[in-house]
Computed example of a mutant assay.
Amino acid sequence: MTDMTDMRASVVVPCYSEKRWEQLKAAVASAWAQEPRPERVVVVVDHNPALLERAARELTGTTVVANASERGASGARNTGVEHTTSPFIALLDDDATARPGWLAGLLAPFADPSVVGTGGAIAPAWERGRPGWFPDEFLWVVGATYTGMPTELAPVRNVWSESMAVRREAFLAVGGFRVGFGKVGERARPEDTELCLRMGRPGNGYGGGRWMYNPAAVIDHFVPAGRSTFRFFVTRSANEGRGKIEMARLNPGQESLGAEQSYARELPRAAVRALLSGRVGRSFALVAGAGAAGVGAGYEWAFGARRPKAMEPAVA
């Protein structure tokens, strides 16, 4: 088990596109600026030789490696963890910046030895401003903290990989992220939730444990203009519905979709409240988002079983 007097942490940042170069530099700088200072910041380049060469040349003091697994953020994050030795690993996306206190906030709950992982709050940084119709309950569509999440330190089923910390030994014991299951292209598979379920389950090779959410650990996550359209909103909601059914097939049991079922029961009430307060656009978006997620889930339930179930974790 982890020596609780040893709170050393490293930060892993996956990346894949030179178009995000300035954002990547900002993400890395924000990681190095944390207190406590990370033991190591590892940038993992996902099958992009030109970006790999540039990052290795310009990100001085930072460990830069190529994704040794198949394309995708899951394999990249696994590769990054393999290049660390600290007992705790924090994950940060290349289009996000960590605010002061982020790493300390993620590490604090690990004082409890039953905690295997933590996550923090994610604030959307809209490129062109937030659309007036965009519901608070659907901010997860753009990878941000949404209404319904805890407002103080609390146990949760899962957190998100763009702002996550794990016990390295627990992460390795379950095999890391399930390679091939993450967000590739237009598909949205919840690789972070799937990992949280496996790490939290007893008999997983480590012993299981709790996940904690600390809203005091905050990152700002860039939301490009293309993700603030209604078309993206509906498409992303449908893909999330499909992805959650895929996840449930890999992790049978009530805990797989229990949180989603509770969330879905709240959406009609939220739509009514928005309508009564004169926010017709938000009310319509709540209905449309819920409907799209339901259609996606139904499609995956009816036809998805014909596809191969799965992909073994990559980390030994």
Rank of each mutant, 00 (worst) to 15 (best):
D3H: 00
A9G: 03
V11P: 00
V11C: 14
V12R: 11
V12N: 10
P14M: 07
S17M: 10
E22F: 02
K25E: 15
E35P: 01
E39V: 03
R40P: 04
R40Y: 03
V41N: 01
V44F: 01
D46A: 07
N48Q: 10
L52T: 02
L52N: 01
A55G: 00
A56K: 08
R57V: 01
E58Y: 04
L59C: 02
L59G: 04
T60C: 06
V64L: 10
V64I: 01
V65W: 13
A66E: 12
A68S: 12
E70L: 12
R71G: 11
R71L: 11
R71A: 15
G75L: 00
G75F: 02
R77F: 01
V81S: 07
V81F: 14
T84A: 05
S86W: 04
I89R: 04
A90E: 07
L92I: 00
A96C: 15
A96I: 01
A98V: 01
W102K: 00
A104M: 04
A108Y: 00
P109K: 05
G117F: 01
G119W: 08
A121M: 12
A123G: 02
W126M: 11
R128F: 03
R128W: 02
P131H: 09
W133V: 02
F134Y: 10
P135S: 06
L139E: 15
G143V: 05
A144G: 08
T147G: 13
T151L: 13
A154V: 05
A154G: 11
N158D: 14
V159K: 09
S161M: 04
R167K: 11
R168S: 05
E169N: 10
E169H: 06
L172Q: 11
V174T: 06
G175W: 08
G175E: 08
F177H: 12
R178A: 10
E186V: 08
R187Q: 12
A188S: 13
L195A: 00
M199W: 12
M199G: 08
G200C: 08
R201N: 08
G203L: 06
G208Y: 10
G208T: 10
G209I: 11
R210F: 08
R210I: 12
W211Q: 13
W211E: 06
P215N: 08
V218C: 05
R227M: 14
F232Q: 07
V234I: 14
A238H: 04
I245G: 06
G253T: 02
Q254H: 06
Q254C: 05
Q254R: 14
E255H: 13
L257T: 01
L257I: 00
E260Q: 14
Q261F: 11
L267V: 15
P268N: 12
A271K: 01
V272M: 09
A274V: 10
L276W: 07
S277D: 13
S277M: 03
V280P: 09
G281E: 07
F284V: 15
F284R: 14
G289H: 09
V295W: 10
P308A: 07
M311N: 13
